[in-house]
């Protein structure tokens, strides 16, 4: 029986940037645990020596030429933005630098 604690769920929710209430965290703890039980049947399979499949088709080296193509104007790019200032996307202050 898998068990994901509420604390683990809280950590995952932060990684995923989802604000959840304590009730939601508790419900998710149960639901994720149940799903992991279902997944348990494949965790037990012997897959030693089996390569992973990331892609359904065996394609390689798909490349495009280095030629400019028209993109969007700044106005088009910014049209959907929740907040714009000075031709740029405005966001609340960023805590901490880029990881």
């Amino acid at each position: 029986m898998s068990r994901i604690s509420v604390e683990e769920v809280r950590h995952v929710a932060l990684l995923a940037r989802l604000e959840l209430s304590d009730d939601e965290l508790a419900v998710l703890s149960g639901e994720l645990s149940a799903l992991l039980d279902h997944v348990e049947q494949i965790r037990r399979l012997d897959t030693s020596g089996v390569p992973p499949t990331a892609h359904p088709l065996p394609m390689r080296n798909v490349l495009r030429e280095d030629e400019p193509r028209p993109g969007l104007s700044a106005a088009e790019a910014l049209a959907a933005a929740p907040a714009v200032e000075d031709g740029r996307y405005s966001v609340p202050s960023i805590l901490g630098d880029e990881p």
Binding site: D66, P68, R69, G71, L72, S73, A74, G87
Partner: peptide, 24 residues
């Protein structure tokens, strides 16, 4: 020093007006 970006045809150059060298 490419003409375009890594995954799209937008110009790779320095100093353009903000958000003018972008695409979907």
């Amino acid at each position: 020093s490419t003409r375009t970006k890594l995954f799209c045809g937008c110009e790779n150059s320095f100093g353009a007006a903000p958000n003018s060298q972008v695409c979907p």
